[in-house]
Design a protein around this nucleic acid. Structure first.
Lengths: 251, 251
DNA sequence: GCGCGCGCTGAGAGCGGGCTCAGAGGTTGC
DNA sequence: GCAACCTCTGAGCCCGCTCTCAGCGCGCGC
């Protein structure tokens, strides 16, 4: 217990190999979006800085030497590809996650994913951004392995994030993308009650206009697939939210 | 500082005989292309430097003493063959992979390949460059064999990269060049979901302007040949991509 | 014990991701 | 110069996914 900042999950944080927090630089010209993003990343226990354009991004990078950079492709002064090149001269093994509009010129993004970097299209969900970043850091060998690789486990429920495979008691459970994302959030916060608003904020895109009712719906879907006939792991806390726990041992 | 870490897939990385990362120098006057190339090679866990012309290439080479060099034939100051000669004075056993335009002087290239080096014509795919480099290093005895040679195996599916032979359950499977390249990528990343964008970036040429639709098409071709009538190994993960797994056991 | 309202679930519409077929254009080899 | 093959585009179809709506059960406060 040496954490200096209020951190969300009780789960072990992903840290650098020397135990200090992962350092991330968020670069986006929309201050609101940058704020939301950095909030979510701080929640992971990481150290976050922000920048609004390419020039200040590079300046920040030189000072911070970040492990990873979240980088909007469309910047007021330059484009992301140029920034990427410069970033690599600052720190050659930096991980970069691009943010791009869905219908943007994807040809310039081409080649990015091949280099080990990754991208998500706007509008994205925070869970997705965090998951991609974790994946990048893990593959780059930049993070200390506190868990056994890319596998999440709660009770007899396991999730392999890379293979996108979920099993309960050894049996394969097939999930749709949204179901998978929701279960991932629950599994990364076991024994912690998450409100519908929290879930909505993290699993659904930030521009989602719908109501919290979808959360109930997808919880219902998950129960059918994950709890089906077995001792329940997904519990409702009336008036508060939902919580995932290992199934009770009793008869 | 250029500390290459164990990047990329969980598969064992090809390393030097002493276990340290393979050292590669990328020489191309197009900075974007050099960036993409070095990204892909770093993803292999190799240590990469870049240079934009013949003079700085030689300077870098003297410092790095690279195991292999990816060398554009057309350079702003000299041509690749001159650089090749100088490189051999720096390190006589260096492996060289030439990058050349399709209609370049192929007769001069022919002489090169006789010497143990190799070449690819622009535009190329990253998978091809990486595969050729791996082949060169392996033949030169420069890399530690962590896998059993040039043979990939997933379940009852095998691929001999050098002979370009693929078998499923002992039966020969005949593939077109693109199909082969796509299957190689899948086999080098078993149990890992690859997005269509990732596949496009690695298997298709960097100047390919088309849509991700071709990936679906070629997956469909592969299924007809690889999975034909057998328990399927190629799986679609809706909204995420494709994954290759050993066929499920049991009925 | 009663009623309110939160939460659960079934039905179904709309959409878009993914698969396949057909065919054009290009390349290779004979 | 022709034939075979390979690659890619376009169109059409199917179906899984997502979300809205509506009705019902049940927990909880009174």
């Amino acid at each position: 217990m040496n954490t200096s900042r209020p951190r969300g999950p009780g789960r072990p944080a992903l840290t650098r190999t020397d135990g200090t927090p992962i350092r991330v630089l968020v670069v986006d010209d929309d201050p609101d979006l940058a704020e939301v993003l950095s909030g979510a990343l701080r929640y992971e226990g990481w150290e976050v800085r922000t920048a609004g354009d390419g020039v200040s991004a590079l300046a920040e990078a030189r000072g911070l030497l970040p492990d990873a950079v979240v980088l909007d492709v469309m910047l007021p002064d330059t484009d992301g590809f140029t920034v990427l090149r410069s970033l690599h001269t600052v720190r050659s093994d930096v991980c970069v996650l691009f943010l791009t509009a869905r219908d943007a010129v994807e040809d310039r993004i081409a080649g990015i994913t091949a280099g080990g970097d990754d991208y998500v299209t706007k509008p994205f969900s925070l869970e997705e951004v965090v998951a991609r970043l974790r994946g990048l850091l893990r593959r780059a060998g930049m993070a200390r392995q506190l868990e056994d690789g890319p596998r999440l486990t709660v009770g007899d429920l396991t999730m392999d994030e890379e293979a996108r495979e979920v099993t309960r008691g050894g049996e394969l459970v097939e999930l749709s993308p949204t179901e998978f994302e929701l279960l991932r959030l629950l599994m990364r916060n076991p024994r912690r009650v998450l409100s519908k608003a929290q879930i909505l904020d993290r699993v659904w895109s930030y521009d989602f206009g719908g109501q919290a009712h979808v959360v109930e719906l997808y919880i219902s879907y998950l129960r059918k697939k994950v709890d089906a006939g077995r001792p329940p792991m997904i519990h409702t806390v009336r008036g508060a939210g939902y919580v995932l726990k290992p199934a009770a041992v009793g008869p």
